[in-house]
Each structure stands twice: as structure tokens, then as C-alpha cells.
């Protein structure tokens, strides 16, 4: 999960460390080339694109940028994306905690299978995920007749978008929590139960505080991915402008229509949200490492 760097204490006799190379040190040129490669790649593939996005977005001034993001269709895509997140994150929190709890605290048949298939949403291509749900819920699909009989729309509507994004981000919370809860065991919960606490109070006062940081971390990853999901949404949303286009989809539409400034303006919002997520994630990691060091 989080990589904690250990600081090597300085040698008390600096003269020696200069004259005698430590046995575990790499040769100078190896170190330098590795650092250079890492920095060049980071600059080329991360920093530069980020700078391009921000530069292009604000190239024609703040006024144009503001007009681009308040344009009705763009604003609708931003609202839709945030709405999806509001649904998807709680769904994944409930699912993730339930799965992690079941896997780490109970013995039941099919447990190894559950552990194996929990990663499936990561393994399947998002386009295939979209198609699966179209086949299930589409008007020609298995449940299509029943749905239209009850006047319900899933495909080419917001529920479909929420379903495919929830599916695609399903493993995030569970994957964070399972190793954490496995490592913690169930003794504290057992102690709580013997002290007369109900199962719910045990979860609330003992389990939740213990998994708090892992849970927040999982939510952040889930949130970041939910906002950026493209492939599966492109299939099930029907790409109705101002209605079923999330931000990534809307950006693509603008791009295809040669509206580069507008495309980059909306991109800058998505990128900004991602940067905020990374900032929160780093803060959480910092808190977590401090918490663990206690």
C-alpha cells in the first residue's frame, strides 16, 4: 500500500564513510542513470502532459475557460460525474467492508473463489463490461422486456452509468481492507464481544477505527477511478449530450468537434479533481504512517 521510507542515520564518523565505500552501495554511475531515467520518464509522461492540459485550458484567458466550463452541456457533464461518484462511493464502501469482513472473520465454503473473482472487474476490459450490461438491461437484452414493461430505463440513462462504474471500481475498497483486516485478526473484536458489546457496537467502536485509514484510502482510489471511467460508460450511456455524458465522454465530444480550448478546459477540471485526490491521498498516507509509527 503505502511505501514508508526509512531514513538511514548518518554515520558518526564521516571521514570513514568518505574513504571507505559501504559494501551495499551501488556504483555511482548506476545510481545516476537510474535516477535520470526515472526523472525523464516522469517529466515526459506525467509533468509535461499535465502542464499541456493546464496551459491549453487557460491559453485564451480565464474568461474563455470559465465560459467553457459553464456552457450548459459541460456543466451537465460535471454535475453528472459528481452525481455518479455520490452513488458509487457509498455502494463500494458497503460492498468492500462487507466482503472484507466476510473473508477475514468468517469461514464459509467458496471463500477462495470469492477472493479470486473479486479482482475480476480489473481484469475485464471496460468495453466488455459495458457490453455485458447492455446485453442484460438493453431493450433487446434479457431483462429488456421486463424493464420496459415497468417503465424503467437503465441503459442510455443514469442508472446504467452508475452500475458500470460501480462494477469497474468494485475491488478498490475490498482490496485495501482485506490485507489490513487479515493482519489485525479478530482478537480485538472478540475482546469487545466478551465485554458485552453487541456486534454493531463492536463494528462501530473497534473495527471501524482500526480500518479507518485503509477505508479512506480505498475510497479515494475508488473516487479517482469513478470520475475517470470511460470505456464502459461510453457503451451504456448512449452519449446523449447534456444528459448522459460524463466528463471524460464530454471531453472526447469536444475534442472530436475541434473545440480544443473547451476540451482542455473541462479536462482541467477533471485533472484538478485528480490532483485534489492525490493531495488527499498523500495526506492520508502521511497520517497513516504517523499513526502506525505510534
Amino acid at each position: 500500500m503505502s511505501s514508508t521510507s526509512t531514513s538511514v542515520p548518518l554515520l558518526s564518523t564521516p571521514d570513514l564513510s568518505h574513504t571507505w565505500k559501504r559494501a551495499t552501495d551501488e556504483p555511482d554511475w548506476v545510481r545516476r542513470s537510474l535516477i535520470t531515467i526515472a526523472l525523464v520518464f516522469l517529466g515526459l509522461f506525467l509533468v509535461l502532459p499535465l502542464a499541456v492540459v493546464l496551459y491549453s485550458a487557460f491559453e485564451q484567458g480565464l474568461g474563455v475557460w470559465y465560459a467553457a466550463i459553464t456552457e450548459p452541456d459541460a456543466a451537465a457533464s460535471i454535475r453528472l460525474t459528481l452525481l455518479v461518484v455520490v452513488f458509487v462511493v457509498p455502494i463500494n464502501v458497503i460492498f468492500g467492508v462487507a466482503v472484507a469482513w466476510a473473508i477475514t472473520k468468517f469461514e464459509f465454503p467458496g471463500k477462495p473463489l470469492l477472493l479470486a473473482i473479486i479482482d475480476m472487474p480489473f481484469a475485464i476490459s471496460p468495453v466488455v463490461v459495458g457490453l455485458i450490461f447492455v446485453i442484460l438491461f438493453g431493450s433487446q437484452g434479457w431483462l429488456g422486456n421486463w424493464l420496459s414493461a415497468h417503465d424503467m430505463r437503465i441503459i442510455f440513462a443514469v442508472p446504467g452509468i452508475i452500475i458500470v462504474i460501480a462494477f469497474g471500481t468494485l475491488p478498490f475498497v475490498a482490496r485495501e481492507l482485506i490485507p489490513l483486516m487479515q493482519q489485525q485478526g479478530k482478537q480485538e473484536e472478540e475482546a469487545s464481544l466478551t465485554l458485552g458489546a453487541s456486534g454493531w457496537k463492536t463494528f462501530w467502536y473497534v473495527t471501524l477505527p482500526n480500518i479507518k485509514w485503509g477505508l479512506i484510502y480505498g475510497v479515494i482510489l475508488c473516487n479517482a477511478r469513478a470520475m475517470g471511467e470511460f470505456g464502459a460508460v461510453a457503451i451504456v450511456s448512449g452519449r446523449i449530450r447534456g444528459e448522459t455524458n460524463t466528463m471524460p465522454l464530454h471531453i472526447e465530444v469536444l475534442y472530436n468537434e475541434y473545440m480544443f480550448t473547451a476540451a482542455f478546459a473541462v479536462s482541467s477540471i477533471l485533472t484538478g479533481l485528480a490532483l485534489v485526490t492525490i493531495a488527499i491521498k498523500s495526506t492520508v498516507e502521511w497520517f497513516e504512517s504517523r499513526h502506525n509509527a505510534e
Binding site: Q187, T194, L195, G196
Partner: peptide
């Protein structure tokens, strides 16, 4: 159920609640 039996259980590895103070631990029950 365990929580209704009125037993006190002391574990080999203590199983104290890490995120609570000593006072909160003892007061928990």
C-alpha cells in the same frame, strides 16, 4: 451469545483496543 454470558476474557496477546487510552479500554465494557 458471548456478549450476554458475562465472562471476562484475557487474551495471550492482550487484545487491548489500540486506538483507545488505557482509561477508555477499561471503561469500554
Amino acid at each position: 451469545h458471548v456478549s450476554d454470558r458475562g465472562v471476562g476474557f484475557v487474551f495471550q496477546h492482550y487484545a487491548l483496543f489500540k486506538h483507545m487510552t488505557v482509561y477508555e479500554n477499561v471503561a469500554y465494557g
